[in-house]
Simulated scan of single mutants.
Amino acid sequence: MIEITSWLRIEDDEIVEKATRASGPGGQHVNKTSTAIELRFDVRNSPTLPDDVKTRLEALAGSRLTQDGVIVLFAQGSRSQEMNRQEARDRLVELIRRATEKPKPRRPTKPTYSSKLKRLETKGKRSGVKALRGRPKGDD
């Protein structure tokens, strides 16, 4: 069981981990050992996540989310399979933790009187500059 917050935990059977060969330099070691970890977590079919967290998590996942609603994380930074497994799990936990935070509702505000005046003054100056860019009048 993986603890996300004090009130949210994910069962180990909800996560699918697969060891694959890592890419990049490493000589013979990289060609014969499967140290990279591909972690998959099905967001849409998860029984433990609330619906609002699922929605925010899908938005946060971005390109890591498949068409079926599965988050795919790939960790290959370490030469150790166990360290890569822990790194992938940590990234998943952090992603879900960020999705549990409810966004602060935006309160619309009105522009102040002085900001309105400043905007109109700037518009007047810009229009004056642009008017000078035209052809001179009356010098034909």
Results as ranks from 00 to 15, higher is better:
3 E>Q: 15
5 T>F: 12
6 S>H: 13
6 S>M: 05
7 W>Q: 12
8 L>N: 11
10 I>M: 09
10 I>P: 06
12 D>Y: 07
12 D>P: 12
13 D>L: 05
14 E>F: 13
16 V>W: 12
17 E>Y: 05
19 A>T: 06
19 A>I: 01
20 T>A: 08
22 A>L: 05
27 G>W: 02
27 G>N: 03
27 G>L: 04
27 G>Y: 04
27 G>Q: 06
28 Q>H: 10
28 Q>R: 10
29 H>M: 08
29 H>P: 00
32 K>I: 15
33 T>F: 15
33 T>Y: 14
33 T>L: 07
34 S>Y: 06
34 S>I: 00
36 A>C: 08
36 A>E: 05
36 A>K: 04
36 A>T: 05
40 R>L: 02
41 F>M: 02
43 V>K: 04
44 R>W: 11
44 R>I: 15
44 R>T: 15
44 R>Y: 11
45 N>Q: 14
47 P>W: 06
48 T>H: 13
48 T>M: 08
49 L>C: 02
50 P>C: 05
51 D>S: 12
51 D>N: 13
54 K>I: 05
55 T>W: 05
55 T>C: 04
56 R>W: 05
56 R>N: 01
56 R>S: 00
57 L>A: 03
57 L>T: 08
58 E>C: 14
58 E>R: 09
59 A>R: 12
60 L>Q: 07
61 A>C: 04
62 G>L: 01
62 G>R: 03
62 G>M: 02
63 S>L: 04
65 L>E: 02
65 L>I: 04
67 Q>R: 10
67 Q>Y: 03
68 D>L: 07
69 G>R: 06
69 G>E: 07
70 V>N: 02
71 I>L: 03
72 V>C: 11
72 V>H: 08
73 L>Y: 01
74 F>S: 03
76 Q>D: 14
79 R>W: 06
80 S>H: 02
81 Q>C: 00
82 E>M: 03
85 R>K: 13
85 R>S: 11
86 Q>G: 03
86 Q>D: 14
87 E>S: 11
89 R>I: 12
90 D>W: 00
92 L>F: 07
94 E>P: 00
95 L>R: 02
95 L>P: 01
95 L>W: 05
96 I>R: 00
97 R>L: 10
97 R>P: 00
101 E>N: 06
101 E>K: 10
102 K>S: 07
103 P>Q: 04
106 R>H: 10
108 P>H: 07
110 K>Q: 12
110 K>L: 12
110 K>F: 09
110 K>A: 08
111 P>Y: 03
112 T>K: 10
114 S>V: 09
115 S>I: 09
116 K>M: 13
117 L>S: 01
119 R>P: 04
119 R>H: 10
121 E>L: 09
121 E>F: 05
121 E>Y: 08
122 T>W: 11
123 K>P: 01
125 K>L: 11
125 K>D: 15
128 G>A: 11
131 A>T: 12
131 A>E: 14
131 A>R: 12
132 L>Q: 08
135 R>S: 06
135 R>H: 09
137 K>R: 11
137 K>H: 12
140 D>Y: 09
140 D>E: 15
